[in-house]
Every structure is written in structure tokens, then in C-alpha cells.
Design a protein around this nucleic acid. Structure first.
Lengths: 150, 150
DNA sequence: GGTAATTGTGGGGAAAGGTGGGTAACGGTC
DNA sequence: GACCGTTACCCACCTTTCCCCACAATTACC
């Protein structure tokens, strides 16, 4: 499932964040509106139920003797929670995830292929700043982008 | 059975640790809430009764002539206890396991495929620190992760 | 342009979850 | 058999979460 768009919200004192209405509608169709949230690359990743099931299936095949990959599973699956938006369309972000992603007040939600992401506004701006710099400096990156037909 | 999520608790003076409510519910369905606990990789591994039965079955097939594997069985099975959460949802961690995993005050419980793990907070932070460093330095690891479709 | 519906934010109250402690049963030791 | 430390089973308290309701702001529609 692909998600599109950028949305800005504020996280309230109880740690609740609104989920974009169009995303909620899409998720409603697949799994009664519930989805999965976990920590990765300085933000939170959100997956629809069926995409998440596929991921879990692969995670459970990681051999427990592979030290590095096990550390990853610990981190990724350990961060995971199933969430269901309340009647107002908000979810409660667990404290551990909130602190990982640095969510305090202003929050950005971004559509992505197969997932959407929840960022602290400040961090997201830094990330975008870095990208804009690199796109001008890194020729390989520019070439990769144009190869996408953009 | 797959477990997910990360939970932080404090171990009290009597050596009791809370078990996450969602895990307790899952375990309730399979085996009246009891599960098995043992020592491994600097933390404690917890298995649901039916998964544990499968493990024991395999352990019993280890030939007694295999010196190295026998040492493992001694360690792994020797550490094992069956525990049942009390009415408040806590278990008593035996002193030997407590000291093996370095559990003193703050404790983290992590969901994993087929098991969950009990860590000392400090040790888990080290473990995660190592992982985050490796993910940036080790291109092969990064590639393995993206191969999971994440 | 006015009205209705949708969307986002805040807060109150009930329920659940987590923590600490007291006391009685149990088990091992001298 | 008495004593001591450990474990099991309660009860009580506090914090967090869940489920409402209310309202402001924006958008859609006639």
C-alpha cells in the first residue's frame, strides 16, 4: 500500500497524535483501521496490517545465531506496537517511541511506498536540508534520481 | 508465537518483575499463563509452554557424546525454570538468573519471534548502541535489512 | 455567501496497569 | 522441633491509558 502527502500536527500532553484522514480511510479498508508502528532511522515507521504481517514473517526467519541481525530484530520488533486510532482519529504513541523519534510538540507525517513515517518537525527539516545539499554536490545521487524518470 | 513491543519496569527488592499485560494475555490462551525462563546471550529468554516443549524435545536428541553441545544443554536447560505470574502479573526471577542477566533495578522486556527477552536496561542500551553503530558502518548489514522489505 | 460536514485539539472520568508492602505458608538447617 | 530466610498470596495506592464529549477551524456543498 502506498501513501502520499505531508501533514503537520501537534502532539498533545497525553502523547496523542492525529493520523491524516486520507491514511485512516485507506487503513480502514484493510484492517479495521489498525496499523503497526515501530522505530527506525530517527523516526517512526507505520505499516498497514497486511504489509506488517509480511515483515514479521521474514523477521521470524532470521536465524537466532546471527548476532547482528538479531540485534536488528530486537530493535525493530521490540519497538513495534499495534495501534488503533480513537474516535477522533488519533493514536497514543508509547513513551519509548516518542523519545526515540524525539516527538515533543510539532510532528510531520509523510507518505511513503509501503508505509508512512512520523517525524519530529525539527528533525525532518534537518533531514531535508541535508538532502538538498547533497543533491547539488553528489553527482551519483542526481543521476540515480534522473534514472527514475524524474 | 511472536511477541512484539518494548516495556520498561523496575525489579523490586524481592526480585519480582512485571510481565507486560499483552504478553500475559497471549500466554494465558496457551498454557494457563505459565511460561519458561532461561539464561542466554547476556539476558533471559522466555518461551511460551508449547514452544518450550518443542525446544526440550530437540535438546533431548543431542547425543551425549557431543561434548560441546552437551555443555550448551547443561547451561541452557540448567538455567530453565517454569514461572507463573502472580495476581498482579509479576514473576519472581530466581537469584541465579537475576545475576546472570545483571538485573538490578531497571529492566527492559523485548518482544521477539518465538520468545521474549528480559534485559538489564543498561546492557540493552549498550546492545542497541552497538547495533546503531554497525548499521551505519556495515554496508552488508544494511543490505540484509533492506532485503527484508523494510 | 451561508450552512453543513469534516477535521483537528483539548480535557474529564472510569478502568487498567504497575509498584510497594504486610502477613502467612513453606523449606532447609542446626 | 525451633528458628531463619525465602516464597506465595493478599491488599492498597498511584500513574497511565482508554473512551467519551465538547468545541474551534477548515473545507465542501448548495
Amino acid at each position: 500500500m502506498i501513501f502520499r502527502g505531508r501533514f503537520e500536527y501537534t502532539i498533545d500532553l497525553k502523547g496523542r497524535v492525529n493520523i491524516p484522514a486520507p491514511f485512516r480511510d485507506r487503513l480502514q479498508e484493510s484492517a479495521q483501521g489498525s496499523f503497526f508502528l515501530t522505530n527506525f532511522s530517527d523516526c517512526l515507521y507505520a505499516f498497514a496490517a497486511d504489509d506488517w504481517a509480511r515483515i514479521e514473517e521474514r523477521l521470524s526467519r532470521v536465524p537466532s545465531t546471527d548476532r547482528k541481525m538479531n540485534a536488528f530484530v530486537r530493535f525493530f520488533l521490540g519497538g513495534a506496537v499495534e495501534v488503533v486510532p480513537d474516535k477522533q482519529g488519533r493514536i497514543l504513541v508509547p513513551p519509548s517511541l516518542r523519545s526515540y523519534a524525539g516527538l515533543e510538540k510539532e510532528v510531520v507525517i509523510l507518505g511513503m511506498p509501503n508505509r508512512f513515517e512520523i517525524w519530529s518537525l525539527a528533525r525532518w527539516q534537518e533531514e531535508i536540508g541535508r538532502f538538498e545539499k547533497e543533491v547539488h554536490e553528489d553527482l551519483g545521487l542526481a543521476r540515480e534520481i534522473s534514472a527514475l524518470g524524474i
